[in-house]
């Protein structure tokens, strides 16, 4: 996040997903902001961890024209003939500085820069195209997601101040200074608040940080009367242990203001993205959530006394 004197704070957006149906009520546009203080082992979006833009390469679209190699200042692209007569396009990620030259040169959309700076005004402009869809059904809006949107706090706050009547959900890990949550609590229509693991050592082990701050912020928001929906990313054999599920149930009883808890079953997309972003080995290769597993989780949570849990 950087500040410019004329345009106010900016943030790096790495994707804007239209027709988002599962990130809050109605039809939404989900804006993914780059940068995250956590590093959850099951993360779907490892490309969002760092705040800087990153090169993305989709091999299926490459036509081996060689333009990228021609313009790359660091020699990250190379081509090799393979035994079967095909050409292999190799990308040495360690050499890439994300300068964007090859993205500019690639005629076939095989290369993209994941992450581009947006001002609040620019973002609102882009979102204006989707406004007709926010009227559908119960009503939709925008979901700020990440990464961790709170890592771009200045931008998020400025966005919320200027959003007008737009319905905004904030998807957050809860890992940010309490002061910041206090400042925006009243402007966010719904918090999609992740609850990932318990106890705190386990949380630290899986996500890189403990969960004390996250718990405290959750209570703070509930205390302030904010609308909160818990989100439970569950990975079988990783964080679906009894202790965690019991803690979830206890939390839901303790904070009846919470609208409910949504199970987010794990899908092995993060690992598939690795090669596209050159992040090999940085996320766990885990098995997809098996058939019926989600129902088992639901049952278990209910047996521990959890209310309002859904998928």
């Amino acid at each position: 996040m950087t500040a410019s004197p004329t345009e106010g704070p900016k943030a790096i957006v790495y994707d804007i997903q239209r027709l988002s149906l599962n990130d809050g009520p109605g039809i939404r546009t989900t804006v993914f902001l780059k940068g995250c203080p956590l590093c959850c082992s099951w993360c779907h979006n490892p490309e969002s961890w760092e705040q800087e833009p990153r090169l993305a390469y989709t091999d299926a679209l490459c036509r081996f024209c060689g333009e990228c190699a021609r313009v790359c200042p660091t020699g990250a692209h190379s081509f090799e003939a393979e035994v079967d007569g095909k050409t292999a396009h190799r990308l040495d990620w360690s050499k890439c500085t994300a300068c964007g030259n090859c993205v500019e040169a690639c005629p076939y959309d095989a290369l993209e820069l994941c992450g581009r700076e947006y001002s609040v005004r620019e973002l609102l402009n882009v979102l204006s195209h989707d406004r007709p869809y926010y009227r559908i059904g119960e009503g939709g809006g925008v979901t700020l997601s990440g990464g961790e949107p709170m890592a771009s706090f200045g931008f998020v706050e400025a966005f919320l101040e200027r959003k007008g009547k737009l319905h905004v959900c904030l998807e957050t890990s809860g890992y940010a200074p309490a002061e910041q949550f206090k400042r925006i609590a009243a402007m966010v229509d719904l918090f999609l608040y992740d609850w990932k693991a318990a106890p705190t050592e386990k949380h630290r082990q899986l996500c890189g940080v403990g969960n004390e701050l996250i718990g405290a912020n959750l209570r703070l928001l509930c205390g302030m009367g904010a609308n909160v929906l818990l989100r439970l990313p569950l990975v079988h054999g990783v964080n679906d242990d009894e202790e965690h599920l019991k803690a979830v149930a206890a939390l839901l009883r303790e904070l009846p203001q919470i609208k409910g808890a949504q199970i987010m079953p794990y899908h092995a997309l993060g690992s598939a993205k690795e090669s596209r972003f050159g992040l090999a080995g940085q996320t766990m290769a885990l098995a997809n959530t098996g058939d019926g597993q989600t129902d088992l989780w639901l049952k278990e949570l209910k047996s521990f006394g959890a209310i309002n849990v859904f998928v």
Binding site: Q17, N22, H44, A60, L61, M264, P265, L269, A272
Partner: peptide, 26 residues
């Protein structure tokens, strides 16, 4: 023929993604 299907959105687990952006195995 990924180039012809850039608009195809699929549901993967709890979210949606551009089909052609996914890796072959997915």
């Amino acid at each position: 023929r990924p180039a012809e299907y850039r608009d195809l959105i699929v549901r993967v687990g709890g979210f949606s993604a551009r089909f052609v952006d996914l890796k072959k195995d997915v």
